[in-house]
Nucleic acid binder design. Sequence first.
DNA 1: CATCAAACGATAATTATTTTCCTTAAATAA
DNA 2: TTATTTAAGGAAAATAATTATCGTTTGATG
Lengths: 138, 138
Amino acid sequence: MNTQTIALHLREHNLKVTPQRLKIVESLNTYGHLNIDMLYAEVQKSYPSVSLATVYKNIALMTEKQLLEEVKIPESKSVFEVKKAPHHHLHCRRCGKIEDVVIDCSGICRIAEEKSGYLVERTETVFSGLCPDCRSGS
Amino acid sequence: MNTQTIALHLREHNLKVTPQRLKIVESLNTYGHLNIDMLYAEVQKSYPSVSLATVYKNIALMTEKQLLEEVKIPESKSVFEVKKAPHHHLHCRRCGKIEDVVIDCSGICRIAEEKSGYLVERTETVFSGLCPDCRSGS
DNA sequence: CATCAAACGATAATTATTTTCCTTAAATAA
DNA sequence: TTATTTAAGGAAAATAATTATCGTTTGATG
């Protein structure tokens, strides 16, 4: 996704286009999932004088506007990603890598509804274990 | 679960039995899921002079010893529960209630493994939506 | 290019969590 | 029991994380 597309994306969500915001979204496009500190470090590479408060404010704002999403990972810091179609996450406990995985959860979701009487609007699953690299000991 | 059983449970995990610890575990047995603040408030009811640091230290220690478990809920504070057999969670976005639900996730878990090459050791799912009460507008 | 609202950066304030240190209490064994 | 040892508790300080404030700058719009 190029800069123009990201800029458009920001405007569609009623957000002014600033270099810091572009860099945040670009970083997330590049790396997939980053926590606050990693994101701050990334933005600093291009804008050494960026304020940590700017990163916090932008993440909060973009998350509120549904452009980004927070993913809570067991035993580690939350990461952020660019919001996309519903999907789930894989987390390697050894190297910390986080990946998306698209799986149809409608089955277990329906079972959860039947068992509980809840109306389920959203299902978040994190699968934790070892990624292919860490499995094979590399 | 009575006090004696909880005391035994603590000793089994190499933890001294103290009134504060008993109260923490009793509170979680009673309410199922509580965040730090709620837990502190609960313990204060019985021990008004308890220190917040004591609650933090005990939760960290008991979680480390696998007696408790932290559950990360999207858009809200983490809650703690007494560790039990694997299960998943339901979260009502309206009233904030959190409930356990036992569902067999081995199917999607296996699909996740096949799609990704990961070895999945643990699956955490949070179903969010409306609980029966909030569905019916009460 | 002028205007206006919003974003930025610096910093202070607030909130959350952890550490320190001294006192107290639980476990163990005499 | 009671003495001893070791860990836990409480108070407060220290640190970390997050949010708010405010003067200045910048992006959007006409």
